[in-house]
Design a protein around this nucleic acid. Structure first.
Lengths: 352, 352
DNA sequence: CTGAAAGCGCTAACAG
DNA sequence: CTGTTAGCGCTTTCAG
């Protein structure tokens, strides 16, 4: 009465062997007389039988769990993504183990260790390790599938869902130029990530194609290195960047930056200095987190589809886990421009 | 070479019995000759031994995991809270299993079932079930500790970390009155939760104490019932509420609402109708999510300390799991007023 | 179709 | 101090 019923309890009650019970309860396609099957099913409902996963696991089955490694759920971009992962998992009977690395390689390794120990079926992750000795070995040694998203690595043979940051940067700047802006600043955290580097490249490319001189003075890089990746930090960094920008006496026409949270920080700092957005300066963000449409002025931005990324990455992972032998798949999500109110359209005539 | 080393592999390599290896590797205080101990430790490093949790678990040990049930990580309030839980867990060697219920009782039950199956050591949760047959039975039957937060239930003997919503509502309204506002509207989602009911009570109480007539016309309740608890929904609900409010030809002096996301939605809708905040109408939110300080105008609000709540709830749970026999503990967090820019101070003289 | 029995990796008596 | 052994709950041969 006190402890959980096991198959052997059920076996006794049904007057059959534990093997038979196991066959029925684990949905084996093994033949069992329908009458017996029903009896066992009935009893197991009655006693509220719940299989003990550990027993199963010991036999070597892989758990229906997948690891999800992200910088932090506190960052709305990743919260969205996690939400998508969760939904896919539920649909297909898996359980996501959510691990925040806070952009700390030590933590990341720790989480990966734990996930392996738990014998997860797979991992979807946004790694920040540039050097791979670890990831590579471990993942191949055990048979744990891995799908990378967000930050990917071409040196590893993993499936991935990445994003065309370069094009995103390009689109942002190009749009600003189409709106009549010429003096366009790029405000960024340190270029220690491929994504930022790519956006900067897109920025340069758009200037070039539109015949605007690249001016390194207009690329402002903060020195703050975030230990975590929460929105908090990015917001503060935005304020810092705005202050750096204001050291220059002439304001640019427009600002492009590496994510929406940073953009919001920039707007806030500028506003508190009496500079209006978009009247005095236009700004365009990156990511399209949900809050961006809610603030005033609503933020024009480059959409990086977090929900779709999470959905796709999870689907790929689960497909692979379930043995659908697909080739290594590297999906690149396309940026789209979300026009809102933080960019002003300048009539050609009014500019000197 | 291919498969994971087990204690018996190590035992062979070290020429000792598996029992000795087990004693060393599981940090038992059982006496083992230092020499042997070192040898075993050395070998286990070499072969990169990782204990198989399932073997341990089978013996009945409880896993070092705790379940965390919240409406959704997409809601910044809960994202913060989860972040705090994670940190506590890491400090003390536990792993949090994060489960989003999306305010769906079915999901909630499903998650609880799964958590029990996994034999988690405990659960910290924000339940939305009013009727308990389920929670109660299960939790007592197995020896899983439970700590409730956010929404609590007095009918169950669980530890809890709750919040004084009534006082929060009171403080919000009282502050508005101190600022010179008299006609104060309360905009809310359906009063199907204790938290909302309590805030409304605080609202009424503050009016009463300050000698202002309660006007039921100024309590605006939307009919939208959210299936999920993402910020998205609350934001939309805010817009809906603002539209309902505008059906009345005379605008109130100030608005108090049930959470910051809703407040942001209200502000957005009012702004798009040409009504300025706080010039034309003041507004005060509830929760103090991080974004509230970042928007323009920054949102005056009642602080509900999500991080501290998560920290405390987790500490209590882990303490209880680890056998520190404390009495049932019901902590009530106190609201604080965060003054920012969305409330205007009206000089007494200028009001007629 | 059904049952007996051998483990999966580990811990914990118990016996040296 | 160390080794032997009996399970924990379940799946899975292998024999009926």
């Amino acid at each position: 009465m006190k402890k959980k019923p096991t198959i052997s309890d059920i076996a006794k009650l049904a007057n059959v062997s534990i093997a038979t019970v196991s066959r029925v309860l684990s949905n084996s396609d093994y033949p069992v007389k329908e009458e017996v099957r029903q009896k066992i099913l009935g009893i197991s409902k009655e006693v509220n039988y719940k299989p003990n996963i550990f027993g199963k696991m010991l036999k070597g089955g892989s758990s229906k769990e997948i690891g999800v490694i992200i910088p932090s759920v506190t960052n709305p971009f990743y919260a969205q993504l996690v939400s998508a992962v969760e939904k896919q998992c539920i649909n297909r009977g898996y359980i996501p183990l959510i691990c925040s690395s806070y952009n700390n390689p030590k933590m990341e390794k720790r989480h990966i260790d734990i996930l392996f120990q738990k014998q997860v079926a797979g991992i979807v992750m946004s790694t920040i390790r540039k050097d791979d000795p670890f990831l590579n070995i471990e993942a191949h040694d055990k048979n744990v599938k891995v799908v990378l998203f967000d930050q990917t690595r071409t040196d590893l043979q993993y499936d991935s869902v990445s994003f065309d940051f370069r094009k995103g940067g390009y689109m942002a700047v190009d749009y600003l130029i189409q709106c009549g802006h010429k003096d366009i600043a790029f405000l960024t955290a340190p270029i220690d990530r491929k994504s930022r580097k790519m956006i900067l490249e897109g920025y340069k490319q758009a200037l070039k194609i539109n015949g605007i001189m690249y001016n390194s003075k207009r690329v402002i890089i903060s020195s703050m290195i975030g230990t975590n990746d929460s929105g908090e930090f990015e917001y503060e960094n935005g304020k810092t960047l705005a202050r750096l920008l204001l050291q220059d006496k002439v304001l640019p026409d427009a600002i492009v930056t590496i994510n929406d949270m940073t953009a919001i920080g920039i707007i806030r700092e500028l506003t508190s200095e009496g500079i209006e957005v978009p009247k005095d300066v236009s700004i365009i963000g990156f990511d399209n987190i949900s809050i961006s449409s809610m603030i005033t002025p609503s933020l024009t931005t480059i959409n990086q589809p977090s929900y779709e990324t999470g959905t796709l990455a999870t689907k790929m992972l689960l497909d692979r886990i379930e043995g659908k032998e697909i080739e290594t798949n590297n999906i690149v999500m396309k940026p789209t421009l979300i026009k809102r109110d933080s960019v002003k359209k300048i009539e050609k005539e009014t500019r000197q």
